[in-house]
Design a protein around this nucleic acid. Structure first.
Lengths: 217, 217, 217, 217
DNA sequence: CATGAATGAGACTTCATTCAT
DNA sequence: TATGAATGAAGTCTCATTCAT
C-alpha cells in the first residue's frame, strides 16, 4: 500500500524510546490494515475484528490505541488526508506556474489512481464523507488557482466554485480509472478540460496539460 | 411472490384489482420511507425497524414485500434512478440545441438540490455506489453531447471523458449546495464552466448558461 | 418463587388482548428469572445471557422488554419492592393497634425469610442498593409508629431514627435467618427487642411480640 | 520469592531489608488505593487498571503482589477488617462497664461515619458480603454484652440475637449518616435505643448513652 | 396480509491476565 | 521489580429474519 512511507511526517516528535517505537509501529499497522480494508469494502461494513485480523493483532489490541470504533475511523481518515496532502505538496514544489502546478496535480492523482487502484478506491470512499480531507486540499488548490489567475492564464469568476470544479473533476476521473473506464491519455485530457473550464485559452490549456510531468518523488 | 414489475405506477397499467392497488400502495410507502431516511443517514445505518416505523407498518410487513434487506435497498436504488431519469427527460423535451439542453439539465439539478436538499442528499449517497444510476443518465447526456458537437458549439475529444466531466461537476455542485457552500447564480456559473470545458467559446458558454430556464414541469 | 402470585396488582389495566397477555407473561418470566438468580448471586455477577437462559428465552428477547441492562435491573427492583409492599399491606389490614401491626410485620418478614430463603436473599441484596424500595416501606412503618405513639405504647423521640431502627433490625434478623444463625422464636424475640427500643414497657413488649399471628394470606 | 538477598542488619529490628520495606509500601499503596475506590464504587465495578492508576503504578505491577484479582479483593477485605477491629479495641480499653463500652462503641462508629463518610461507605459495602469481618466484631461485642448482663444493666434472652441487633442498628445508623438522613445527636439516640432493646431501664439507658465520650485516640 | 414476539448471529467493548523488555 | 503492550474470553447490545397468531 502507498501509505506509511513516512512514519508520521507533519509533527516533529520527541526522541522515541524502544517502547514508543513499538507502539507507533502497531498503531500504524492498524491504520494501514484499515486502509487496506477500506479499499475493498464500504466503511460501515468493516468489523473491528477484521481490522485486527488484517493487522495481525487480537481484537482487544485495537482498544489500546483507539477508545472507540469511531475514533479509529477518524484516525484512518486523518492518515489518508495527511498522506494525500503530502503527495500534493511534493508535486507542486518546483513548478513556478500556478496553472501548471494545478494541471500536474490533477494528472498525477489520476495517474496514481491507475497505478494504485486500492489507494484510489479508499480515497474515493473516504472523500465521500470526510470534509476534513477536502479542506486539506483546499490550501494547495487555492494557491494554484490564484497564481493562475495572477499569471493571466486562468480567468474564473468565483473561487469556491472553481475549487469545487477542480476537485469534482479529479475525483470523477479517478473514479473512472478505478471503474476501468479510463483511456490512454485520460489524465492530460481531464487536466485540459479543467483548465478550459477555468478560463484558459484552448491552445494554452492543451499545451499545459500535455507538458511532461516532473519526475515522480 | 411476484412483485409488480413496474415500480412507478403513473404510466398506464395492466388491470389492477383493489388488492393489488393496496399492495402497491404499501410497497411504495415502504420505498418512500426508505428514501426519506436515506436523505438523513448513511445506508448502512438504517435499520429495517426504522423503515417500518417511518412507513407506519410493523417490521414483519416488510418481508411481505421484499425477501431480504438487500432486495429492499435495491428497490430503493431503482426508484431513485427512475425518478432521476424522469426528471432529466422532462427537462430535455422542448429544447432544440444539445448544448442548451445540457446546460439546462445541469442547472436544474443544482437548483433542485437547493430546493430539496433531502432529495439531493439521498441522491449523492446513492450515486456513490450505484453504477446503474449513472448509466441511466448516460443516454440523455450522451445525446446532448453529440448534438452539441454536431451543432458546432462543443468541441471535446473523447466522449466518455466529457460525460464524466459533466456528471462529476454537477454532482460536485450539488454537494456544494447541500453543504451550504453555494452562492447565488451557482447553477449558471457551473454550467458555464462545463460548457467551456467541453470546448464552447467563452462568450457562447456564458450566453447559453445564463439563458432563461424553461418553466418548471 | 414467591413473586407473581398477582400478575400486576397495583395498576388497574385495560382488558388485555391475547398478544398482550403473552407479552406480559414473558416479561414476568424474565423478571422472575432475574429474581431467582438474584437470590444466588450478586447482581453485578449476573449476565443477561444467564437471565435469558433461566427464563428460557433467547438473549435478544430481553431487549424486547428492557432497553438496557440497567432498566431490567430497575424493573426487578421495582417488582421486588411492589411485592414487598403488598406483603406488608396484607398483613396490616385487620389489626387495630399500631404497635401490634409493627410487631406482626417484623415477625412475618422474619418468618417468611425462613420459609423462603431465596426470597429473603434476593431482598437483602436489592435492599442494599435500592433506596426506592426502602421508601416504599416507609409509609407503612411510619403509620404504625405514629399509631403506636398515639396509643401510648411506644415512646421514641425521633421518627426517622425509629424507622431506621425497625428496618435495620428486621433486615439484620432476616440476614441471620438466611445465614442459618436463627433460633426458634427468633421472630418474636426480635420484635420484642424492637418494641423495647421504641420505648415500650418490658412486659407490654413481650406480650405484644408473642401474641398469635393472624392467619397467613 | 521472599528471602532478602541482603545480610541481616546488625540492629535488633525485625528483619526488613530496604527492598522489603519498599515492597510493603507498594503493597499498602495498592490496598489503600482499592479502599479509596471502594468508597465510591461497588466492588464489581472496579477495574484493576483503576486501582493501578489510583495507586500510581502500572497495571502489571499489581500482579507482583497479588496472584489474582480475587486475592487482591481479599486483601482489601482483610485490611478493612483489621482496621475495623483496631478501631473497636482502642475504644473499649479504659471503660470498666460493659454497657458503657457498648454504647461508646456504637456511638463512635456512627460519629466516625459522619466524619469520614468514605470510610463508612466502604465499610457498608464490605460488611454486606464479608462474613469474616462480622465475626471479627463478634468477640468485642460479645464481651461487652456479657459484661452488661453481669453488671445487671442489660437483660436480654439470647446472645446471638442481641449481637445481631447491635450490629444491625449500628450499621443502619451508619447508612443513615452516609445517606445524609442523620440528625444531631443521632449517635446517642441510637445507642439509647439499643440499650433499651437489650433490656436496660429507660433512664439508665439514656444516662449511659449520653455520657461524655472518651477522648479520641 | 399484518402483526410483533422471538430468535441468534455478530458487532462493539471491557478487562483480568500474561509476558517481553 | 516495574512497565505497558498484547491477549482473548465474556459481556452488552443490535438487528435481519422467522413464524405463530
Amino acid at each position: 500500500m502507498a501509505p506509511s512511507t513516512q512514519p508520521t511526517p507533519p509533527t516533529a516528535e520527541p526522541p522515541l524510546s524502544r517502547g514508543h517505537k513499538k507502539r507507533e509501529r502497531t498503531r500504524r499497522g492498524l491504520v494501514d490494515a484499515a486502509l487496506r480494508l477500506f479499499s475493498r469494502k464500504e466503511l460501515g461494513e468493516i468489523a473491528l475484528l477484521e481490522v485486527a485480523e488484517e493487522a495481525d493483532v487480537s481484537n482487544g489490541t485495537i482498544y489500546n490505541y483507539f477508545r472507540t470504533r469511531d475514533e479509529m475511523v477518524e484516525a484512518v481518515g486523518i492518515a489518508m488526508a495527511t498522506e494525500f496532502s503530502d503527495a500534493v505538496s511534493s508535486l507542486s514544489q518546483h513548478v513556478p506556474s500556478g496553472a501548471e502546478r494545478l494541471a500536474i496535480g490533477v494528472r498525477m492523482f489520476i495517474i496514481r489512481a491507475s497505478n494504485n487502484p486500492q489507494w484510489a478506491s479508499a480515497l474515493l470512499r473516504v472523500f465521500h464523507f470526510d470534509r476534513a480531507m477536502r479542506s486539506r486540499l483546499a490550501i494547495h488548490v487555492q494557491t494554484d488557482l490564484r497564481a493562475g489567475l495572477a499569471e493571466g492564464v486562468l480567468a474564473y469568476e468565483e473561487e469556491s466554485t472553481a475549487f469545487d470544479l477542480v476537485l469534482s473533476c479529479t475525483i470523477g476521473a479517478m473514479r473512472a480509472v478505478v471503474e476501468g473506464r479510463a483511456v490512454v491519455g485520460h489524465d492530460a485530457r481531464v487536466a485540459e478540460m479543467i483548465l478550459k473550464a477555468l478560463g484558459a485559452a484552448s491552445t494554452k490549456a492543451k499545451e499545459i496539460a500535455e507538458a511532461a510531468l516532473p519526475a515522480p518523488p
